[in-house]
């Protein structure tokens, strides 16, 4: 099994030779669906080169790099991190809609920013260090 870390998730996937995997697994990890036009999410499709496709398989590393996202592997290539593309982050922030997130409180209860719609929110970070 190959471990893939995304900005909000952690997935165990049967991948080989890097990040070659089934389109089903690729969708589970990224939310993008393989269609004849390429990898698609909502009404956006990103065409893939023939070199990133095989019968019932897709090279997720090639796709993610085409999107402009960083792909980092551990030395043993058993753990990978797919980062959010810079342009995706910039576009989301420049739209000024506060990116939603879900994080646990001290008791492990998940809380989402979107639950606070209708109130002014002062969102502040801190740390012990």
């Amino acid at each position: 099994m190959t471990k893939i870390l995304t900005p909000t998730g952690e997935h165990d996937v049967a991948a080989h030779d890097g990040l070659w995997m089934s389109p089903v697994d690729a969708e589970r990890v990224t939310g993008w669906t393989l269609k004849p036009e390429g990898m698609c999410r909502a009404d956006l499709c990103v065409p893939l080169p023939a070199s990133a496709l095989a019968p019932n398989e897709v090279d997720l590393e090639a796709f993610w790099k085409k999107l402009g996202g960083p792909v980092i592997a551990s030395e043993a290539r058993d753990v990978w991190a797919l980062g959010a593309p810079a342009e995706e982050r910039n576009a989301a922030l420049e739209g000024l809609e506060a990116p939603d997130f879900t994080l646990p409180d001290l008791d492990g209860m998940p809380r989402s920013l979107s639950q606070l719609r209708g109130r002014k929110v002062f969102l502040a970070t801190w740390a012990s260090w």
Partner: peptide, 20 residues
């Protein structure tokens, strides 16, 4: 990562419509 922050404490002000 989501808000491109670099230090603590940093704050973002968000209005009733969820806008920064």
């Amino acid at each position: 990562d989501l808000y491109n922050l670099v230090n603590v404490p940093q704050a973002i002000w968000i209005d009733e419509q969820g806008r920064i």
